[in-house]
């Protein structure tokens, strides 16, 4: 099955880190992604720009409106996402739990809605 992992953290926390700390975190993350790609888990990995770069778009009665910032004002923001293949939710949790960023923030694990493919559980790994 496919799962989307949302990497959530307080941007303030990241801002307060030194450059070398930030670099170390990013390097560790990319090294882990490399490993996940090799093992057939990782499909897509994308970091996101900070929320200052975000706009929220709506269309109502033919009028498009655009506002600054993310649609939800929350303490933690989505800082990136990963689309992965996993045998089941527990494997997805296991994959998520090893991202360096979960030591600072959280990772939301969401199953991608897709029709069950028969025999999916017996596939040790899927094409990437």
């Amino acid at each position: 099955m496919k799962y989307l992992l949302f990497c959530c953290h307080e941007e303030k926390k990241l801002d307060s880190m030194s450059k070398s700390e930030c670099d170390a975190l990013m390097n560790e993350t990319w090294a882990y992604c490399e490993k996940l790609k090799k093992s057939g888990h990782l499909i897509v990995a994308e970091p996101l720009e900070p929320i200052q770069m975000a706009v929220t778009v709506r269309a109502r009665n033919g009028n498009v409106s655009v506002t600054d910032g993310p649609f939800a004002e929350t303490k933690e923001q989505i800082g990136g996402f990963f689309l992965i293949n996993a045998i089941d939710l527990n494997e997805a949790i296991q994959v998520a739990s090893k991202f360096p960023s979960v030591r600072l923030g959280t990772m939301e694990v969401r199953p991608v809605a897709e029709p069950e493919r028969p025999g999916a559980k017996t596939e040790p790994c899927q094409d990437v």
């Binding site: 099955m1 045998i87 089941d88 939710l89 527990n90 949790i93 199953p111 559980k121």
Partner: peptide
């Protein structure tokens, strides 16, 4: 069995079983 399969058989939700 996968977490999802166990949840389905026990009429439970995958997060609970996980």
């Amino acid at each position: 069995l996968t977490t999802e399969e166990i949840a389905r058989s026990f009429l439970s939700s995958p997060p609970t079983i996980a």
